[in-house]
Amino acid sequence: MLILLGVAVIVVGFAVRLNPLLVVVAAALTSGWFAGLSPLQVIAAFGKAFNDNRFVSAAYLVLPLVGVLERAGLREQAGRVIGRLRGVSVGRLLISYMLFRQATSAVGLQPIAGHAQTIRPIVAPMAEAAAEARDGSPDIATRHAIRAMASATDNVAVFFGEDIFVAMGSVLLMVGFLTTAKIVLDPIQLSVWAIPTALAAFAIHATRLVLFDRRLARQATARGATQP
């Protein structure tokens, strides 16, 4: 029971906003200690797992590309393209992006886009430009809300698209685990049952994006009223 204190350390540490890297190490030491491991054993186990998971941080290889493109004006160009289009709104732009992202993830092309290489240099500037073209220059809090919604849309699309792909890690994990429980299934049998959830996710998040557009419009009207 006391090994769960490691989880408590995480919850409290994140809630009071201590530095998360320190919180994570403290949580590992806590749970390890109550599981009967010495601090040195925990540090070694943590080091081994950290080394085994380097692939997680290898994704930052895209940063130089994104930086160079920003230096040459990609974000400005993304905004210009959207500024020229009529009838584009933040919601409609993000709904189109969600459709693209969900469809490509469903055929295993989940790594072709992401927060660093797509949202920051292209989608977020486009969304901010769309808001500007429609409702005038948004204030900084609104810009932050638009960016957060852009990232959230990427996550929702990927999470509820990728499980339709039969070779996805999570699908293979399910097949492997069920096999150990003597339930033998083909990956495709699991994949098809991800489709109803995928459709529902698109409908729900798209509805939220339409409502988000209305909220932006209301806020713009309020801004206009206070600044005659």
């Binding site: 989880v7 749970s31 943590f46 950290f50 998971n53 997680v56 941080s57 930052y60 940063l63």
Partner: peptide, 27 residues
């Protein structure tokens, strides 16, 4: 760009390692 993310860039890898330690401890 990496300095705008700063230490948070390493947080996903830290958490993956924490998952392994939690598994070892039986959480």
């Amino acid at each position: 760009l990496v300095d705008t993310v700063s230490w948070a860039a390493l947080l996903p890898q830290f958490l993956a390692a924490l998952g392994a330690v939690f598994a070892l401890a039986g959480v």
